[in-house]
Design a protein around this nucleic acid. Structure first.
Lengths: 160, 160
DNA sequence: ATAGATGCAAACTCTTTGCAGGTCG
DNA sequence: CGACCTGCAAAGAGTTTGCATCTAT
């Protein structure tokens, strides 16, 4: 479900493998340090759009001396390099190892954000662009409601 | 573009006007004080999904002694009463006087969020619900890109 | 060797809260 | 009058930054 390479429509990959994570970083003079690699790995192997605090806790299991500042710095850097996506939520920024196009479902009871497969909406996009004068670079659907787990233990949700 | 009444599908409005803002508040033992009325008015007459700080500045023009705490308290309270909508953004919470269903366009260069008319996607919604087991309470499309103004003064945007 | 990265602690921004006094109905 | 609300100041939560030290290449 999670890809290891992010070619970013590089010109031609006729020969040899597509650029790896290391290549992407090296090309900009950035190093793939131990903390950085583990942080990226944690985000990519977590499904629930983790917060920085969550990533910190998980990384510390493998690298006990890591600092929260390093986690923040790397999450921001990796997002800037396009290796992961970031997104604002009520309780802070959340990160996503899935950089492909996809929609979201946010559970209003537990706050979890789920990925759902995206449906291309080319027509919608074109109509939007021409009627507003906006340059549309990306789009997605956002669903809000209650996930299966929260529906079962109904009663103690934030919802009326 | 902005409605003054928010009836919230009340049973029957056969006779007499639909509940006003004052009614909605009174029904819960809440008062419509001067700060509260002005805060609501500012959000409703602003198009750009203002932050709390923006609302504070605007309210202070009409009520110089108002405190930021009062602005925050009221924004939260009014959102809880359904009189306005709130939404997380990278620079903090943003508020919206338009509580009806509508889509959003976020300008990645200036951070402004624009409302765009919503398109009902009943089929999409039903399919989502049945294939995931999620209870869908609301949904919208989120577009990202550059607004007209930012396209013109190109170069100093946050975008590559 | 050296540009870049890390850990630590302090600083910053946004938001919430305790409390004494003021206000709406 | 009494419940609700306000201003002020202090506290909280999440995130960023300065700096000396360390490390990947």
């Amino acid at each position: 479900m999670i890809t290891n390479n992010h070619s970013h429509h590089s010109g031609a990959a006729r020969n040899g493998p597509p650029p790896t994570t290391v290549d992407t970083l090296r090309a900009r003079g950035l190093k793939l340090t131990r903390p950085r690699r583990i942080i990226l790995d944690v985000v990519r192997t977590t499904d629930a759009h983790p917060t920085a605090a969550f990533v910190y806790r998980r990384v510390r299991r493998r690298l006990p001396r890591v600092s929260l500042a390093t986690v923040y710095r790397n999450l921001r850097l990796l997002a800037a390099e396009g290796l992961l996506a970031e997104r604002a939520a009520a309780d802070g920024m959340r990160f996503d190892g899935n950089t492909g196009t996809h929609d979201h479902f946010t559970c209003l009871a537990c706050g979890r954000i789920y990925d759902v497969p995206a449906r291309p909406q080319t027509a919608v996009r074109a109509r939007m662009a021409s009627s507003t004068g906006f340059e549309i670079l990306d789009y997605r659907m956002e669903f809000y409601g209650r996930c299966g787990a929260c529906r079962r233990r109904r009663g103690r949700s934030r919802l009326g």
